[in-house]
Nucleic acid binder design. Structure first.
Length: 495
RNA sequence: GGCCCCAUCGUCUAGCGGUUAGGACACCGGCCUCUCACGUCGGUAACAGGGGUUCAAGUCCCCUUGGGGUCACCA
């Protein structure tokens, strides 16, 4: 049994599609890749991998006005960044007009579609009138029963679907359960525009059928399109795929993510645009992990490797309510991935972020050493770059509160002693360094290592928090460390 | 407004009739400690409301409320 009640959800089964799962991601190239779009791409990708199926990328560019090549590149680039490799495509709808034409002719020949000469203005007026009268607007069928062989001359016309006015009572959704179909909304919708271009709902059906798509996994905003698409499948005598409508993604305030509020989002650490996450210093796999987990779950687990994701993902555990982007959790996840990252990889990734701070460097050994203690402290790459600043430039000023607390006159002695001891110590031996510091503490500060360390930390970094002092000294080197200590000595206890 | 969908801590969620309602982020404390962070231990915090069904309801049904989606010659 697929379902046991009207609102219960069906249990998932591959049914007749065993071993031939084919899914697709079908964005329209009208701008950068939307974060909500990525989520549907991820779910499709994961679904394909999970069931050994095929993931295809189709570009929905039937609207020539708004589509552009640049957007296509951005979409593919973003998918590559996220490691969402597709098996087929990109397939461009704009290049498949013959296919659409053939299906249109078939419908026309069979009387399942007809030419309509109503103008956009007329239609608009009727729609407004219906609205004013608080009526539901559907096409009134003015051209429905006219003689198909009448001579239209040069009159522009659209091609409409001759709605058979019969449809199932409901359709099955793998995520939502059973969705009722409202017969009152079934009308003669437009298949081909007056400029000859096919419409979305028509192309989707023809394409999905032609490409052998077994499961249509898409956003919730398409549920109302599904009935009319099912009717078309039936009119075309094509097999109807399975449908799965996933919940949408919302902003922190609970409303739909809108491009207009991008500025606001950025300040909170999120964005509508995928590529912006790269700029904000998020790791692609952390983003994918986050987006997947937003709306899907596997018990209490939060962190999933790509392998786990492709082995565990299933539609049954996709939630039905929309999710709100939570920057804090995204950052936390990112931090988890950062922590587990390879030093060399991180060094590579960090270079451009350092450049943004005016620090030109390469991902050399030294940078790898710097990155190592920082990766468990930073949540994002820019944050890490910021933290590593003092490894490249000596502090120009010192934290005021730190000066007050740690640079009392008595601190001068320990700073001076450390400065001198650096002459004889092997800086690469952090335990030896620590030992020396501890001895000093025993002697000067009653064994309190912090009292020795903090003044020096301030002198070396300009701030009162950092990774281990010994690590810092090792990375800075003898000369630079002593220079910074000398400079500090000039001011300690002087006020 | 019509139609459709949704509803457990602030957020993401576990829960598929019997639980002290669990986990994660965030927040607050303790521990660890050269500071910060990591880590670790603990704490605050939820079943939207009302009716049913049932021996028993967060779990099933209905209504209300709230949120969302959609109503194009856009996709």
């Amino acid at each position: 049994m697929w379902f046991s009640g009207i609102t219960s959800r069906p249990s998932f089964s591959l049914g007749g599609f065993m071993n031939k799962v084919r899914v697709r991601f079908a964005p329209s190239p009208t701008g950068y890749l939307h974060i909500g779009g990525v989520r549907t791409a991820i779910f499709n990708y994961l679904f394909a991998r999970r069931y050994g199926g095929t993931f295809v990328l189709r570009i929905e560019d039937t609207d020539r006005e708004r589509s552009n090549k640049d957007a296509v590149d951005q979409i593919i680039d973003s998918m590559r960044w996220l490691d969402l490799d597709f098996d087929e495509g990109p397939i461009f709808q704009s290049e498949r007009s013959d296919l659409y034409q053939a299906q249109i002719n078939k419908l026309l020949d069979e009387g399942k579609a007809y030419k309509c000469t109503c103008t956009a203005e007329e239609l608009d007026a009727k729609r407004k009138k219906a609205e004013a009268e608080k009526r539901n607007y559907t096409y009134d069928g003015t051209c429905r029963d006219l003689d198909p062989s009448r001579d239209l001359g040069t009159t522009l016309f659209t091609i409409r679907f001759r709605n058979p006015r019969v449809a199932p009572d409901s359709f099955k959704d793998l995520i939502l359960g059973r969705i009722p179909i409202d017969k009152n909304k079934l009308d003669d919708w437009i298949l081909v525009r007056s400029d000859g271009s096919p419409t979305y709902n028509f192309c989707v059906v023809v394409d999905d059928a032609d490409m052998g798509i077994s499961h249509v996994i898409r956003g919730n905003d398409h549920v109302d399109n599904t009935p009319k698409q099912i009717q078309l499948y039936q009119a075309l005598d094509l097999p109807v795929p399975e449908f799965a409508h996933m919940p949408l993604t919302h902003g922190p305030d609970g409303s739909k993510l809108s491009k207009r509020r991008e500025q606001e989002y950025r300040e909170q650490g999120i964005s509508v645009s995928v590529q912006e996450y790269r700029n904000m210093g998020y790791l692609p796999h952390a983003l994918v992990n986050y987006l997947t987990r937003l709306g899907w779950s596997h018990g209490d687990q939060e962190i999933f490797s790509r392998k786990e994701l492709t082995e565990l993902f299933s539609l049954e555990h996709v939630g039905r309510s929309s999710g709100i982007m939570n920057p804090d959790k995204l950052k936390w996840l990112n931090a988890q991935y950062l922590k587990e990252s390879d030093d060399a990889d991180l060094a590579d990734l960090l270079v451009p972020f350092l450049a943004e701070l005016g620090i030109e460097t390469t991902a050399d050994q030294r940078l790898q050493k710097i990155v190592h203690p920082l990766k468990e402290r930073a949540k994002t790459l820019p944050e890490m770059a910021q933290m590593s600043k003092y490894f490249f430039v000596a502090p120009e000023s010192y934290e005021a509160k730190g000066i007050k607390k740690w640079w009392k006159a008595t601190a001068a002695e320990s700073v001076r002693r450390v400065r001198d001891q650096l002459d004889d110590l092997n800086l690469d031996d952090e335990t030896a360094l620590e030992e020396a510091f501890r001895k000093l503490a025993d002697e000067l500060t009653d064994g309190k290592l912090g009292k020795v360390a903090q003044p020096i930390r301030l002198a070396l970094t300009g701030v009162t928090f950092s990774p281990s002092l010994f690590t810092i000294i090792a990375i800075l080197g003898r000369e630079e460390s002593q220079r910074r200590l000398d400079r500090a000595l000039a001011t300690i206890g002087k006020e």
